[in-house]
Each structure stands twice: as structure tokens, then as C-alpha cells.
Design a protein around this nucleic acid. Structure first.
Lengths: 159, 159
DNA sequence: TATTGTTATACTCTATAACTATA
DNA sequence: TATAGTTATAGAGTATAACAATA
């Protein structure tokens, strides 16, 4: 358990990190906004999956996932195939064009980070990645309808 | 200079960290959205300042800053006083009510992080804070109109 | 009845551009 | 002319709720 002051610091740093995300976002191709990029990258990383699984990985509501997926499907970067085991479901899969886009995105993020982090050591980059992964993990599934905080009553109305 | 593969990992983790930010955001008071909270916290942290300086610290365009500031001013959490040295400028300062709000925000972030990161050590929290600060620093002022990447021509149109 | 996914609607955050007042 | 700040407008991301189809 860390000291309160350190939690405060971390909260401030997390709030400020949006600037970096926006900086990375500005490097994206004009036809592939952040939401689309995230869908493609997760499908590349984890292989084909259903909408609900993707929503979980994106950590957003399924309605949001549906919109992003509709966009990349329209670009023909993914296919939405019927799930033989459950007719309500759809299986999402990258197309060859989608794979090409993923490669492009990958190269872009490498170029951008190489530019900004040229003076970081290998170790530092890995350390930050690792801590961010752990942070994400500690928060678990903190989507609106999923996890509730233990002191909800004093904050945003639960509905 | 880190290996390309590590940059890719970091890009993925950064993209996923939005979930944590949203989780923290859901704990905010209903009358104080993220933009307002950021303004208050920076004024508390750095003391009174001009709009342009605040925009720089927020790492957003001044038009955005102006909107957030107008909101917190309407709540009477800050004052916008004329700058005697430059009549175009305004000096922003927390009111006592604003200070109270800052304290409330601080307590909220501590409660939320204590809840989610209960099994993190002091050292780990500090390490993550430090790396995030360094990351932000390495990106410098990467706002849209400020910094330009060296390979712009293949990405979003420069204008 | 419950679950998967879609759509409509609303809210927050951000950027660009046009504008004003002052330097 | 250039700069500080405001406002109007547009675009991206997200959440809630209502809905259709299937389990």
C-alpha cells in the first residue's frame, strides 16, 4: 500500500498523459482514427473474436465497439462472419487489406516513438510498458456497467 | 535507443491506458468533469497564471482552455483578474471554494487509486509516476499547432 | 427471461478558423 | 503586424437506453 501523496502524484501524471495519446493520435492515417486503429491492432494481436470479447479488450461499452467495428468493416479491413455456434453472434477477422493497415500502423507508431524517445534506453521503455500493463490489469474490467466503486454514493449518480 | 518491438508494445499499452483514465473519470463529482478538474488541479499545483500558460500545462489549444476555464469561473471556483502588465491577458486564481473543490478531488483520486492499487508497493507507484512524467517531458509541447513530426507528408494533412 | 449486437441520442473533449482587443 | 483570449463549428470518443433477434 503506497502513501497517499504518491497516489495523488500518479493521478496527476495519468491525467496529463492524454497529451501524449493525442500526440500519437495525430500521426494516424487520415482514414483510420484511433478507434479503428485499436480494433485492427487487437484483432491482429489476439486473432479472430466475437464483438463482446473485443468490447472487453477495448474496455468500452459494446455500443461503442459496434460503431468502431462498423467503420473498419466498411473499409473492408475486417469481415464479420456469422458464428455457427450462436446465431446472435458475429466473428470478426482481419482481411488481407486489414493486415496491411495494421502493418502500416505499426510502422507509424515505431517512427513516432523513435522520434520522441530517442534518448530512452531499452530497459526504460520495457519498464514503462510493464507498469502500464500492470496498471491496466489492476483496474480490471472498470467499464461503466461492469465494476462499481465502493463509495459510489458520493460521486456520479449510478442511474 | 530501444528495439522496435518495445516501441510497439509501448504504443499498445498507451492506447489501452485510456480505460484507466475513464475509470478515474467516472469517480469525478457530477458538477466537475475532467476538463474542469484538470484546470483546478494545475492552478493549485502551480499557483496563479495566465491563460496561455495554463494551455501549455494542459497541452491543449487555448480555445479549449478558454472553455474549461469559463466553466470553472461560472462555478466561482476561480477568478479571472485583469493583468496590469498586459491588458489582453487574464490572471487566473483559485477561490476558497475552488480550493475546497481541489481538496475534494484529491481525496477522490486517492480513494479510487487506493481501491484499485491496494497491492502496489510505494516504489512501484513512484516508479510509474516518474516514468510517465518523463514520457510527457520527452514529448515536449506536442500540441497540434506547436510541434510537427518529421514525416508529416504521409499522415494527416498539415493544413 | 436473458443475452448478443445495433441504433438513436446526448455529453465531453479537442482542433480550426474567424473575430476582438491590445501590444 | 503580431499576440492574448473568445466563440462558433465540426469531429472523435464514449455511455445510456430502447430495440431486434436468438438462446
Amino acid at each position: 500500500m503506497a502513501a497517499q501523496r504518491h497516489y495523488e502524484d500518479l493521478a496527476r501524471q495519468l491525467s496529463a498523459i492524454g497529451a501524449v495519446k493525442r500526440g500519437l493520435g495525430r500521426g494516424l492515417p487520415h482514414d483510420c482514427p484511433g478507434g479503428s486503429a485499436a480494433v485492427l491492432i487487437l484483432l491482429d494481436r489476439h486473432g479472430e473474436m466475437r464483438m463482446s470479447r473485443l468490447a472487453e479488450l477495448l474496455a468500452v461499452d459494446m455500443s461503442v465497439t459496434s460503431r468502431h467495428v462498423a467503420h473498419v468493416a466498411e473499409k473492408e479491413w475486417i469481415l464479420r462472419e456469422p458464428d455457427p455456434a450462436d446465431k446472435r453472434s458475429r466473428i470478426l477477422r482481419l482481411t488481407p487489406a486489414g493486415q496491411t493497415k495494421v502493418n502500416e500502423l505499426s510502422e507509424l507508431s515505431i517512427r513516432t516513438l523513435t522520434h520522441y524517445l530517442h534518448d530512452w534506453s531499452d530497459d526504460e521503455v520495457v519498464q514503462l510498458s510493464t507498469l502500464l500493463a500492470r496498471l491496466r490489469d489492476s483496474f480490471g474490467d472498470c467499464r461503466a456497467a461492469s465494476a462499481r466503486l465502493p463509495f459510489e454514493e458520493t460521486t456520479r449518480t449510478p442511474a
